[in-house]
Computed example of a mutant assay.
Amino acid sequence: MKGLIQRVKHARVEVAGETVGAIDHGILLLLGVEASDSRASADKLLHKVLHYRVFSDEQGKMNLNVQQAEGGLLVVSQFTLVADTAKGLRPSFSRGASPQQAEELYDYFLEQAQARLPSVAGGQFAADMQVSLCNDGPVTFLLEA
């Protein structure tokens, strides 16, 4: 499981012109699910996302996690994160989870996040989404579980 996290001032996701998820300051997470992933992978990645220190403390150092910074989390499914780009000029998605497995793990991840953080929103699985954000920093990290 891969997660691209971006520290944001605000972020939202729209489907067909309607906002389906939005947060103020916090983390935008683009979530990729591989065929080898499980609920244990989701739990491990969620722990990393919630505890990764990307927010500044009083001294301006990145020492605070999203919970300590009282930020939100916007989770958007992003199957292209698991693409193999090592060869050629076209990505291979052979490592990606089936749509059914990916949706089940995405839903599970979102439910677990909502149980741990007050402000959690999500995109719409397998939809054509438009994601808008104001990257804060910019601060972007690729996390793997």
Score class of each variant (00 low, 15 high):
Asp57Val: 11
Asp57Arg: 07
Asp57Leu: 13
Glu58Ala: 14
Glu58Tyr: 03
Glu58Asn: 12
Gly60Glu: 14
Gly60Ser: 13
Gly60Asp: 12
Lys61Tyr: 08
Met62Gln: 14
Met62Tyr: 15
Asn63Met: 08
Asn63Cys: 06
Leu64Arg: 13
Leu64His: 10
Asn65Trp: 14
Asn65Tyr: 13
Asn65His: 15
Asn65Thr: 14
Val66Asp: 06
Val66Trp: 05
Val66Asn: 09
Val66Tyr: 05
Gln68Cys: 08
Gln68Trp: 10
Ala69Gly: 08
Ala69Pro: 10
Glu70Cys: 11
Gly72Ala: 08
Leu73Arg: 00
Leu74Asn: 10
Val75His: 02
Val76Glu: 05
Val76Tyr: 04
Ser77Lys: 00
Ser77Tyr: 00
Ser77Met: 01
Gln78Glu: 13
Phe79Tyr: 11
Phe79Gln: 03
Phe79Gly: 00
Phe79His: 00
Thr80Arg: 12
Thr80Gly: 13
Leu81Phe: 09
Ala83Trp: 04
Ala83Phe: 04
Asp84Tyr: 02
Thr85Ala: 09
Thr85Trp: 06
Ala86Asp: 09
Ala86Val: 02
Ala86Trp: 07
Lys87Asp: 11
Lys87Met: 04
Lys87Asn: 11
Gly88Asn: 06
Leu89Thr: 03
Leu89Asp: 12
Leu89Tyr: 10
Arg90Gly: 01
Arg90Phe: 01
Ser92Gly: 12
Ser92Arg: 10
Phe93Val: 02
Phe93Asp: 03
